[in-house]
């Protein structure tokens, strides 16, 4: 039993579940997340694997992170591993991670994986499901694999269409399939291309706060074009998180296309999501960058936004 009190909700560790069929690009995306995560952020990757460990875990380049390998097979065949227990061990350790990413097995249902973890200490940070543009239509129609592929996609908060560059049609058929799936009432996820880089910010920024329904219904994404744009606001002077938050709230109220923002400052972390600006304490070990990452629909006035942020914080 633990003796420490549960931390404040804002200090809960975000937990992202990355699902999708084997070969759909999950490991590539994990490596991108590890490579592009803010400096100093410690990410622990749980590989929830069933005998594919040589294929998956071995390929994860744990830049600043750690990898915990699990097997959740049938108890008759592999007694012992428990994702819940492994999460507990990491979160309650003296050096808990700043972020948890669970790479679900290719045959797992990601929403079932996302149900693990003490909610007083872990903040569900969304389910991202990779879809292989070259293979998803075949997998979805296959007698052995089809039902599970549909369930995986249906569970997603965000679908990431991968390998569009390798598909003969640039991924058009796969995108159409995804959009067909997302018309189902349970799924309202946007489809993003992995070649665009900004999904990393979206994923790392906190999926929980992203109103996926709003984005997916905003505008049908231009086929094969990433619908969002990102920019960086970096003031050359020291600035307090509260001041940034106040400025950001004002900018957001006049720029509806601005969807997400996040920045780590010396005295706190500033978020914008779903129209709300919040300031969280800066986690230990998260180096302040003094910068704000801004994500918005194309066509927004980024110069004006940066100008206003500067004007309001000086």
């Amino acid at each position: 039993m633990t003796e420490t009190c549960p931390p404040e909700a804002s200090q809960r560790i975000p937990m992202l579940v990355l699902g999708g069929w084997l070969g759909s690009g999950k490991t590539t995306l994990v490596n991108r997340l590890l490579a592009e995560a803010p400096g100093g952020e410690r990410i622990v990757v749980f590989v929830n694997d069933i005998g594919e460990v040589d294929i998956d875990a071995g390929l994860i380049a744990a830049r600043s992170g750690d990898t915990v390998e699990l097997t959740n097979g049938c108890a008759c065949c592999s007694i012992g591993d428990s994702l819940g227990a492994a999460l507990r061990d990491q979160v309650l350790s003296p050096d808990p991670p700043d972020r948890i990413v669970i790479e679900a097995s290719g045959v797992a249902e990601p929403d079932r994986v996302a149900a693990y973890g003490d909610r007083r200490r872990i903040r569900p940070d969304g389910i991202v499901v990779c879809v292989d543009a070259t293979d998803v239509v075949r997998c979805a129609g296959n007698r052995l694999t089809g039902r599970l592929v549909h369930r995986q996609v249906a569970a997603a908060d965000l679908l990431i269409l991968t390998k569009c560059d390798l598909a003969d049609d640039g991924g058009a058929a796969a995108l159409a399939w995804c959009q067909g799936e997302t018309e189902a009432p349970v799924v309202t996820s946007p489809v993003l291309r992995s070649e665009g880089g900004s999904w990393v910010d979206l994923v790392l920024g906190g999926m929980e706060r992203l109103d996926a329904a709003e984005i997916s219904h905003h505008e049908p994404p231009e086929p094969l074009d990433f619908p969002l744009d990102a920019t960086l606001w970096s003031p050359s002077y020291p600035v307090a998180a509260e001041a940034v938050a106040a400025a950001l709230a004002e900018v957001a109220s006049s720029e509806p296309a601005l969807l997400r923002a996040k920045g780590v400052f010396a005295d706190g972390v500033v978020h914008l999501a779903a129209g709300r600006v919040t300031v969280d304490p800066r986690p230990d070990g998260a180096d302040p960058t003094g910068q704000l990452v801004l994500i918005a629909d194309f066509g927004w006035d980024r110069r004006r936004a940066c100008f206003d942020l500067g004007r309001l914080t000086r």
Binding site: L22, I50, G73, C74, G106, V107, C139, T145
Partner: peptide, 8 residues
């Protein structure tokens, strides 16, 4: 349930 990916 699948214990291994049937494709692999």
């Amino acid at each position: 349930a699948w214990m291994a990916n049937p494709d692999r």
